[in-house]
Structures are given as structure tokens and as C-alpha cells.
Simulated assay, not measured.
Amino acid sequence: MSLEVETVLVPVDGSEASAHAAEYAAAIADRYGADIHALFVIGETVARGIETGEVDESAVAEDHQAFVADVEALAPEGVAVTTSTANAFSTTRKLHHPGSVTLDAAADVDADFIVVPRSTDLDGSGNVLEKAAEYVLLYASQPVLSV
């Protein structure tokens, strides 16, 4: 039985660790002739900063666009890259966290493979995607590569 992959999901947050995961996602997409979906995950500190006006939303959007452009540049010719953005935490939904956001996105884009970074140093704010990695490894129904 061979593995068939049409869409590789990679959650990213702008960190070096997530850029490294995006490189792996590009290699897997190239190997299987798949597309990449990059989910930009916004951490709790940044999301709350935007809500309170302490963080400039347009600056976050510019950083997001620049990082996504880097992910697109990694993709081999013929590999399409789509993107979406999600807040990693919710003050109104108890079960809304980086891992659940990643798995929800995987279901939404019908991902066949997930590449998730194990650690990140973004903002020093508690490793947003590190929290996702453990959850995704435990509960994903698709193959997962944790890098």
C-alpha cells in the first residue's frame, strides 16, 4: 500500500522552527506531487495585543504576508501554496488551542499529511506551536511529521 498525499498542512507562526517545518512540507509536497496549505497561527500574546490595541494589526499582517511569501518561495515548481490564518486561543471557547486549530484546519483543507514544528521561540510567549505538536501527534488521523 502506498501513501497518497494531495495536501500537506504546515502550521507556521513566523519562527525559525516553523520555517524549518515549511521546508519539510515543501519536500513532502514535491515527493508526492501534493500542494501545501500553510496555516499561520497567531499566538495568545499577539492576539490579545491586537484586541487591546497594543499590537499593530497591520504590522502583524505584513509579517504574516512576508513569511507566507517565504513559504511560497520554498515550494517547488508546480506545487500550489494556499494559506489561512487562525488565532491559537479563544477566550470564549475552552477547547480552542493551537492543536485543535491545527486539526480543524487539516479537516477544512482535507489535508493528507501534517508537518508540525516541535518548538518555536516566537516572542518567548510559551511556544505556541510546541503546544500544537503534542496534541497533533496524539489526535491526528493523518500521518504527522514533527520536526
Score class of each variant (00 low, 15 high):
G78Y: 02
G33Q: 08
S90A: 03
V116S: 00
S18V: 12
V79A: 05
P11I: 03
S15F: 05
E4Y: 15
Y24Q: 14
A133S: 11
V60Y: 08
H64G: 06
R118C: 05
E77S: 14
I114T: 01
S18A: 11
A111G: 10
L138M: 12
T92P: 01
F40R: 10
V109E: 01
D56W: 11
T85D: 09
D104M: 08
H97D: 06
G99D: 09
L138A: 13
F40C: 02
A34L: 03
A22E: 03
E51H: 08
L95V: 11
T85M: 11
Y24F: 15
S141A: 13
L137H: 01
E23G: 10
A22N: 04
A111K: 02
A140S: 13
V101W: 00
P98T: 06
A66F: 10
V115C: 02
V79L: 07
A106V: 09
G99M: 06
D112A: 00
L129Y: 02
A61W: 12
A73G: 03
A105Q: 11
A21Q: 06
A80D: 12
S146G: 07
V115I: 04
A88G: 15
A86N: 12
H97P: 00
V68N: 07
V144R: 04
P117K: 00
T92Q: 15
L103H: 05
Y32D: 07
A86V: 10
A69S: 12
G33N: 07
R93Y: 13
G99S: 13
T83A: 06
D30R: 14
A75V: 04
D110V: 12
V55R: 10
K131F: 00
P117S: 05
I50F: 07
L3R: 13
F113A: 01
A25I: 09
A66M: 12
D30T: 14
R31W: 05
T82K: 15
S90C: 02
H97K: 13
H97Q: 04
G43F: 00
S141R: 14
A69T: 14
A29S: 05
A47Y: 07
A66I: 09
A133G: 01
A73N: 04
V79I: 11
S58D: 07
V12E: 06
A59T: 13
E44A: 11
A59V: 12
L74A: 02
A38W: 00
Y135M: 10
V8E: 01
E51Y: 02
F40E: 02
L129C: 02
S146L: 06
E4N: 14
S58L: 05
L145K: 11
V147Y: 04
D112F: 01
A86D: 04
D123Q: 14
N127T: 10
T120N: 08
V5P: 04
D108F: 10
T120H: 07
Q142H: 09
A80T: 15
A27P: 08
G126P: 06
E16T: 10
L103R: 07
A140H: 08
S58R: 12
A61F: 09
G49Q: 01
E4R: 15
A26R: 08
I114W: 04
A34E: 03
V71F: 04
D121V: 05
